[in-house]
């Protein structure tokens, strides 16, 4: 069984220099358990690597059921000099939500 991140949570992307940070917040406790377990920094890196991005750091805020991913080198050289049509990477929150995760029911 697999599940889309889109179905588990919502996301927002911000920018600083050539680094994008993208938060993912679960809609409920059940979704949070899957996100916390399966939405790893390695999986996020694999999903963003084609942009030349990495490394990826992950921070947990369990009381908000939120994860924060800091994705370096994701913005084509940085907001001010990137040739990209979306130099801020504002649309990258939606890329995060296209990821699919295993949602195995244990037991």
């Amino acid at each position: 069984m697999s599940v889309r991140v889109y179905d588990l949570g919502h996301a927002r992307a911000g920018d600083k220099g050539n680094t994008s940070n993208i938060s993912v917040t679960a809609y409920n406790d059940e979704g949070w358990q899957v996100l916390q377990r399966e939405l790893t920094a390695d999986r996020v890196l694999a999903h963003f690597r084609h942009l030349g991005a990495g490394p990826v750091r992950r921070y947990e805020l369990p009381q908000l059921r939120a994860l924060n991913f800091v994705i370096e080198n994701a913005l084509g050289g940085g907001v001010t000099r990137s040739l990209a049509i979306d130099p801020h990477g504002k649309s990258l929150s939606a890329l995060m939500l296209t990821m699919t995760l295993p949602s195995h029911n244990e037991g």
Partner: peptide
């Protein structure tokens, strides 16, 4: 709470 959580982490790295 949802809009506040998204904006809390906007352009934040290490919380």
């Amino acid at each position: 709470v949802a809009t506040c959580t998204e904006q809390l982490l906007y352009e934040m790295h290490d919380p």
